[in-house]
């Protein structure tokens, strides 16, 4: 692990995040996932009278080995190639673009069953087009593309879009 002096200490939350080891955090998440599955695997029978091996045998070995791999990955993340958040993830502007995609998808998921595809789809596209086009262009493009998609998938391919 790299040593840090008092002068190196991050002053803001954003700076603190940028200094974090992304690999380490991913490894911890993966370890938690493996541990959860390992614990749950004990609820399943290890042996079965019918076939010898029960439904829990394979998952228990699998998740046990996964924990070992998770620990090896965490060790490697700290002692091998370190991926700092500030170095491997983009800046604020680029991350906002990425967050916009995620946000538009969430809006779509929340609205689809209430408003139907054309409105939810248009809103999804509008959120993504607005930063890059004039408002009237963004509105026209969003509605147009949603209508075309609806026509193709609902009418041509019989996809039951709401």
């Amino acid at each position: 692990m790299e040593e840090t002096t008092a002068a190196d200490q991050p002053k803001t939350f954003s700076a603190w995040v940028k200094k974090q080891n992304a690999g380490l955090w991913f490894g911890l998440g993966y370890l938690a996932f493996s541990l959860l599955f390992f614990v749950v695997s004990f609820d399943l029978l290890y042996k079965s009278r019918l076939i010898g091996a029960g439904p829990g045998m394979y998952p228990r070995w699998l998740t046990g080995l996964s924990i070992v791999v998770a620990l090896a990955y965490i060790w490697q993340s700290c002692h091998g190639q370190v991926f700092r958040v500030g170095e491997c993830f983009p800046g604020r502007k680029e991350l906002t673009n990425v967050a916009t995609v995620f946000l538009s998808c969430m809006v779509f998921v929340l609205l689809l069953n209430h408003t139907g595809f054309i409105i939810a789809g248009s809103l999804l596209l509008l959120i993504m087009f607005v930063p890059h086009y004039k408002l009237w262009q963004a509105v026209l493009l969003s509605i147009g593309i949603s209508l075309v998609c609806y026509g193709i998938f609902k009418i041509c391919f019989s996809v039951p879009l709401p």
Binding site: T63, S66, V69
Partner: peptide
């Protein structure tokens, strides 16, 4: 190996094809 085990663990979710037991 991390990627491999993620895939393998995801594959055990659902009904066990041999015994029909629900897992994870």
């Amino acid at each position: 190996l991390v990627a491999m085990f993620i895939g393998l663990m995801l594959s055990v979710i659902g009904m066990d094809s041999i015994t029909g037991t629900l897992r994870f």
